[in-house]
Design a protein around this nucleic acid. Structure first.
Lengths: 205, 205
DNA sequence: ATTTGATTTAATCATTTGTTTAAAAACATA
DNA sequence: TATGTTTTTAAACAAATGATTAAATCAAAT
């Protein structure tokens, strides 16, 4: 197989291809992405793509895996922190995701689209489930709300408030006549507001 | 051009193709959808697709247009109702969308994915913007909250809470070990809860 | 310097896929 | 029935696209 000695150098051919693939796949999705686009973006010969990663499919699996890890494992540290309250973790999660999505806005739509297009691909990553439900964070939702709130509702609310605006940003930007910087400013406001809103929601009922 | 007299009959070839196209496009997206898949789904000869609708692109435009109309114009009546309060309209919108998405769960992801893939296609539908911001609903947000709430935040919250769970349903169903009926039940609960949550959020400064 | 293995290139292949064509079949009308 | 029109079919085409091949180049080791 292909092996690179230049692990210090981040501009190895392999890494250039992977970076280009991440960009093209994430922007256009698997089906619309052309291996030739990836090659051009990486500035390499088309055949090198297959030389280093056997196939478009294999390359995609790698990019998708890293994207998923970036997205989900990124908050694992927060979920498993033993010394913070539920609301402190909410603040951390919101802050983490809004920062991440500012630089990688089309990560959520990419992940969710590809899961819909190919649900079985996710099956192998089902440990996602355990990472979440076994976390102290998940227990805290039940405990600190004394069972009055379904943890799934809590999760949907938190993620819906945080992630949805990025997914719908093209529409929202048209509706609100927003430049990129205006949109970013709105998201910064949400960093502060979402924890407050979530707290208010918890007090109902 | 192709014209059908059998407007009573909903099983004209043209309608069969359109129905099949809606199904395949909405499920797989434009790029991954194969004209042959559509033909098989419709039970017609492949060439008929081009006979009735010049091209895959043209057929897609029609399906997308109808999907968009279904999704956005569907709530126009609610937005422009002159006799209901803001919160009554929130209830109506939530009810409308949860009912719609129960039968058409992949409508939002389809629309948002294709807008991302091809933003200029939406440009023509920019009246979406005016339909919204000129509506009594939009004015009510400012009035009934005395300018304390940015209408865009209000909109993101309402739609995020309502629509996001459907977009993320494959992940949520894995996390929560939910059968389709369990998920539907959760969404029914949200019908009642979201207006309550939104009201609580409005009270926070 | 030569050899050896890894990397890169240009060219080509095989398949998929949107579309077209030409003829057949079905239909309507006189 | 005869005639013209619409609809349907089977076959084929051309372009796009993922993948492969064989030769060239490069780098390191002997």
């Amino acid at each position: 197989m292909a092996k690179k000695i230049t692990s210090i150098e981040d501009h190895s051919t392999e890494d250039k291809i992977k970076a280009a693939a991440r960009k093209v796949f994430t922007q256009k999705g698997f089906a619309a992405a052309r291996t030739r686009d990836i090659a051009v973006e990486a500035g390499i010969n088309l055949a090198l793509l297959n030389y280093y990663f056997r196939s478009k499919e294999k390359l995609f699996e790698i990019v998708m895996g890293e994207n998923l890890a970036h997205f989900i494992l990124g908050i694992k540290g927060i979920l498993y922190n033993e010394s913070k309250t539920l609301m402190e973790k909410v603040e951390d999660i919101v802050e983490n995701y809004i920062a991440l999505l500012k630089t990688h806005p089309d990560l959520p739509l990419f992940i969710l689209s590809e899961i819909r297009a190919n649900p079985e691909r996710l099956a192998s990553k089902m440990d996602v489930k355990n990472i979440l439900i076994q976390s102290p964070f998940f227990k805290q939702i039940s405990e600190e709300t004394k069972g009055k709130v379904n943890p799934l509702h809590f999760l949907m609310n938190l993620l819906g408030l945080t992630i949805f605006p990025f997914i719908a940003s093209p529409l929202l930007r048209i509706i609100g006549d927003l430049k990129q910087e205006d949109f970013d400013a709105l998201m910064q406001e949400r960093k502060k507001m979402i924890p407050i809103w979530v707290k208010a929601m918890l007090k109902t009922k």
